[in-house]
Design a protein around this nucleic acid. Sequence first.
DNA 1: TGTTAGCACTCATTGCCGGGGAGCGCCAAC
DNA 2: GTTGGCGCTCCCCGGCAATGAGTGCTAACA
Lengths: 344, 344
Amino acid sequence: MNQLPERYQRILEAIVSGYIRSAEPVGSRTISRSGAFSLSPATIRNVMADLEDAGLLCQPHTSAGRIPTDTGFRYYVDHLLPVDSGLTVEMQEAVRRACSRSHGGIEDILREGIEVLSRMTPYVSVVSLPHFEEMALMHIRFVRLNDWQILAVIVDVSGMVQHVMFESGGAYDQDDLNRFSNLLNGMVQGMTIQGAKDKLFARMRAEKNEYDALFSRFVEFSRRVFDHDRNADVMIDGKLNLLDHPEFADYDRMKALFRAFEEKSSIIRLLDDALLGEQMHVVIGSENQCAELQGCSLIMAGYGRSGQAMGRIGIIGPTRMEYSRIIPLVKYTAGVIDELLAAR
Amino acid sequence: MNQLPERYQRILEAIVSGYIRSAEPVGSRTISRSGAFSLSPATIRNVMADLEDAGLLCQPHTSAGRIPTDTGFRYYVDHLLPVDSGLTVEMQEAVRRACSRSHGGIEDILREGIEVLSRMTPYVSVVSLPHFEEMALMHIRFVRLNDWQILAVIVDVSGMVQHVMFESGGAYDQDDLNRFSNLLNGMVQGMTIQGAKDKLFARMRAEKNEYDALFSRFVEFSRRVFDHDRNADVMIDGKLNLLDHPEFADYDRMKALFRAFEEKSSIIRLLDDALLGEQMHVVIGSENQCAELQGCSLIMAGYGRSGQAMGRIGIIGPTRMEYSRIIPLVKYTAGVIDELLAAR
DNA sequence: TGTTAGCACTCATTGCCGGGGAGCGCCAAC
DNA sequence: GTTGGCGCTCCCCGGCAATGAGTGCTAACA
């Protein structure tokens, strides 16, 4: 989209932010009387007609005001967003306090993060967890629960803990398991789950040692951890917020939306699709391919440690979203998470 | 409620099940033509007027058919429920297969349980987890993650696993921690969390041993596990099912309902309120005190091990619910869970 | 005494119509 | 390039009548 003349930009900006505020089509009179322009409605109408020809505005029906098209919102986000971020010190404080409250693993930090986001905005907040299989292993340990059950606890460097319970199929006391844990730790520490799995299988074929039976059992049962439910890879908070927006007042629309949140898979795809390289990513309206999420925009930012992207945190709302406030907010939140991860 | 004459019972039964099927007020003509009675609409009307006087039926407006009141549903459930349970062998099989699929802890079993319930019915399924604090401890173990972080893994007899991460505040190698784990296990195994906490505090005051610093740290940080979020004590599945029922087509009503599911606290209260002694418990319509859940009924059953109640599993739906199918289904599911718990 | 047919009545729902109002496009004038 | 004016379109809303389902009541019948 090539640059628009100054006046056109200002009028587009007025229409977009007016529409964001009111959720109603914006008419020429409204803009003329807003005081920002000393132009008559007729003049504004001419400009609006041109903006409509350019595909930035549209009319719900012949005699209604204009609303921005997705392209119009895109132009607004790319060129017209107020530099004054609208991110107050109070908001920054709230985000930082919430995220720092948790002393637990990364999962807790992220949960607090989306929780504060959906409390501070009238939208839905989402976050994708680090992909467990791709993370580096920090620790594996086996715990003897009783004669026949063993618990394997697996911790990755980001502090995510997974556990899997399996039948031991033999008599092992805790000292056996401790030795085995130490052995395993020495072998796989720092590797990814996938890498560890490969190495273990290779080693298993190569040597027959005393831990063989237990060991193959562990590999077998740990598949439940490794091939774990991808739906658990995303957390969502504030779904109810969306019910307050007039664009979702339609029952079927709302149903589709909640179905998407329940399924989670389309949300995961949406978060994953964005190039992990970019810091901020804004998907506007029909730019997302998910049928249930038509009419929604998604603002997201990557988080991670030492430059390594681990996942994305973001906000989903109606296309008519307060971009000027949400974009810096999401960006700031991702930054806070980065800091907290770096400090571990 | 005293016993009604045979004909009154049969007509009430016809109205209730008709209303359950159609969600529409049932008129005298409909019943007369259903074939079950060789009575004219006029006669039926007389009976219906009497049933209305008795408080079992009501009319949405003067010239509409009748719908059952909550009292009417209660009478239906208590006296008229078909003995033929409506629980097919296929349904039993499906429940058993789903619950047995998980080889993990009790949490997985329960998750599969409510998942199959909400797939087999058009309602919401809920389950309360065993109260962690009241469960007997099976195992505590400490894992050294790195120089400054320690992970405590706590397993209760039902197989629920909780973990808490804390700063060690000193140098401990894994062997230290193993010794400490063994010591602790010897002390608290079989006790409830609450009992263990009390004992640990007493012991801490009495003796000063080499693990003191670490130990007090563990107690301090484990409060996060012990005083954990009660919202996690209930799982809910199939919320979307409710959107298909006409009684929740009203936007505000639906909003309130989803808010209740998001908050979870009222669901927990509802599940907890029922006397744990009773096997089956049916709460009909306004019998529940929760404002957001007006117009809903709840059918629940206790599950547990060796006669000891651990929690409750149930189904929430509109007052107009298929009681004849759901009551035996919930009962059966709870039974399957009992069996699986007994087998561990 | 229980059952039935008939009739008048009530009330929600639906479709239709017309007025009011918001907003636009176009045009002519400045 | 800007403005005022005019006619036009379309949504929205209230009123109105027709429809239909279902009731209560009453009188007649077995």
